[in-house]
């Protein structure tokens, strides 16, 4: 499992617009680089990131080889109630990394 950092603000009041920040460890190999022996290194990237809140999709992004290694993805949401955020990173190898974080709204 790749290392992941998720940043959800604390002390959030109902109606606040907050920024969720995520970082995931991943080489994001473009498929355009060559190894020292001259052979192309195969593409290996995260191609989609989805965030749901209590099961409802609130943010999604399609990623392409131009995105650097260890992608940082941040987005905003309006905090209306407390609940669970679920984050999914899908990669070329068919893997899906799933993490959750708690949003507490006063």
């Amino acid at each position: 499992m790749a290392s992941v950092l998720i940043n959800v603000p604390k002390a959030v009041r109902k109606g606040d617009v907050i920024e969720i920040k995520t970082l995931i460890s991943h080489p994001m190999e473009t498929g355009f680089r060559s190894a020292p022996d001259g052979k192309l290194i195969p593409r290996d990237i995260i191609y989609r990131f989805v965030c749901t809140f209590e099961g409802v999709e609130i943010f999604a992004a399609d990623l392409f080889p131009a995105i650097s290694a260890n992608p940082f993805i941040a987005f905003t949401m309006r905090a209306e109630r407390s609940g669970t955020l679920t984050f999914r990173w899908l990669d070329d190898k068919g893997g899906a990394q799933v993490e959750t974080a708690r949003l507490d709204v006063q």
């Binding site: 992941v4 920040k21 970082l23 460890s25 290694a69 260890n70 940082f72």
Partner: peptide, 12 residues
């Protein structure tokens, strides 16, 4: 910003 610094992945 520790939330955006990729080095924090290594810290974790």
């Amino acid at each position: 910003d520790d939330a955006s610094n990729p080095a924090m992945l290594w810290i974790a």
